[in-house]
């Protein structure tokens, strides 16, 4: 199985404190990889290292190497904007941009010079793959904030898909949704692996079991265990992993 992202010796310092310690892991292509662990363990930070959104937090320092298709994304000649186009991200809370539904999805492609018919197609295609097209096709001109919160999250997914990324990062995408819309978004995530490499941060173990092919367990900034979902959940090797997947509060 080909690894699309390789993380090697990755450490992250935040104002002098180590938030991630010497992480090394391969993220396989066109599979869903879940990052689990107790809150504050560095899940989201690791995710943000993968598309350099971590750069936006002042006081952070990254050491080590992350390669995407063999190229180091922290290399000096890398265009961060282009990297973020290739590695899309969907956040915890849905954040519709202050414009119409259509314009939200068209925002990304427009940046890259797509317009006219091609733009229309891109918007429709993205909304379809996010499972939102049927619900919004007659109200594309409406402000995006009028959508329900679950719809908003799928809109953010569509917006991320519209720039044609290769990798999609999800940061607890269902944690602010009600159970029904959460299930809806989750199904969408599971379907996306046909075309994309997916990394999902979640604190919901059942969700990880349901959607992920691979699981990484992070604790106190260290990668404790890493393997297929069955391995990690059925026969965890490490004491802490055993405690965590058994549901003990650690």
């Amino acid at each position: 199985m080909k690894a699309q992202i390789e993380v090697r010796n990755l450490s992250l310092a935040y104002r002098g404190n180590l938030a991630l310690k010497d992480i090394g892991v391969d993220i396989p292509e066109k599979q869903v990889t879940a990052i689990i662990g107790p809150s504050g363990c560095g899940k989201s930070s690791l995710l943000r290292c993968l598309n350099r959104m971590i750069d936006l937090i002042p006081g952070t320092k990254v050491r080590g190497k992350v390669t995407l298709d063999g190229e180091d994304i922290y290399g000096s000649r890398v265009d961060v904007m282009d990297l973020r186009k290739r590695v899309g991200m969907i956040c915890q809370k849905p954040v519709p941009l202050p414009m119409s539904i259509y314009e939200n999805v068209a925002f990304g492609p427009r940046l890259y010079g797509v317009h006219g018919k091609a733009l229309k197609h891109a918007v429709e295609r993205s909304l379809r793959s996010a499972g939102l097209w049927e619900e919004v096709k007659d109200r594309l001109k409406e402000p995006a904030i009028r959508l329900s919160i679950g719809q908003q999250q799928r809109l953010c997914l569509a917006r991320g898909l519209a720039v044609e990324p290769e990798v999609l990062l999800f940061d607890e995408p269902t944690s602010s949704l009600d159970p029904v819309s959460a299930r809806h978004v989750e199904q969408q995530v599971a379907e996306l692996k046909r075309d994309y490499t997916v990394v999902i941060v979640t604190h919901d173990l059942h969700q990880a079991k349901r959607v992920a092919d691979h699981v990484m367990f992070l604790y106190l900034g260290e990668l404790i265990e890493n393997g297929t979902t069955t391995q990690v959940f059925e026969s965890p090797q490490d004491y802490w992993t055993r405690m965590y997947v058994a549901g003990a509060g650690i």
Binding site: M53, L56, L83, G88, V95, L97, F107, G108, L111
Partner: peptide
């Protein structure tokens, strides 16, 4: 968060 959403799409 709004800013981040735009940055995540590769906006300058």
């Amino acid at each position: 968060e709004l800013e981040e959403a735009a940055y995540a799409l590769g906006a300058t």
